[in-house]
Computed example of a mutant assay.
Amino acid sequence: MNKIVIHSEYIKLDQFLKLANCVSTGGMAKALLAENMVTVNGEPEDRRGRKLYPGDQVKVTDCGEFVVAQEA
């Protein structure tokens, strides 16, 4: 599982997908979510604005599994 470090209290899912190099644009993130290819903490997620906090786990089909981590 890959660790993605954030520098704030939370990160929105569409921004996270870009940071994790799963997509390069917001439009690509929207399409990915519409195809039910993303789960957050084991539950399917389709909201681009979903707030992710440290400890949340994100799985993206054909991209990988990630955990949100807080900057130390």
Score class of each variant (00 low, 15 high):
Q15I: 00
Q15H: 08
Q15E: 05
Q15M: 07
F16S: 05
K18M: 05
K18G: 00
K18S: 01
K18I: 01
L19Q: 15
L19W: 08
L19S: 11
L19F: 04
L19C: 10
A20F: 07
A20V: 04
A20S: 10
N21W: 13
N21M: 13
C22D: 03
V23M: 07
V23Y: 02
S24K: 15
S24Q: 04
T25F: 07
G26R: 13
G26S: 03
G26L: 11
G26K: 13
G26V: 06
G26W: 03
M28F: 02
A29I: 09
K30G: 01
K30E: 06
K30H: 08
A31F: 03
A31C: 08
A31V: 09
L32T: 00
L33M: 11
L33Y: 05
A34R: 14
A34T: 10
E35T: 12
E35A: 15
E35S: 15
M37C: 13
M37Y: 04
M37L: 13
M37I: 01
M37V: 01
V38L: 14
T39E: 14
T39I: 07
T39M: 12
T39Y: 06
T39D: 09
V40E: 04
V40K: 15
G42E: 15
G42F: 10
G42H: 10
G42T: 09
G42I: 10
G42R: 10
E43P: 00
E43A: 12
E43K: 13
P44A: 14
E45P: 03
E45S: 15
D46N: 14
D46P: 00
D46Y: 14
D46Q: 14
D46I: 06
R47G: 01
R47W: 03
R48E: 01
G49T: 15
G49S: 15
G49R: 15
G49K: 15
K51A: 06
L52Y: 09
L52T: 04
Y53C: 05
G55F: 09
G55Q: 11
D56Q: 09
Q57F: 00
Q57T: 06
Q57N: 08
V58H: 05
V60A: 02
V60D: 05
T61H: 11
T61F: 11
T61M: 06
D62N: 12
D62F: 08
E65K: 10
F66R: 02
V67D: 05
V68S: 04
V68F: 01
V68W: 03
A69D: 12
A69P: 03
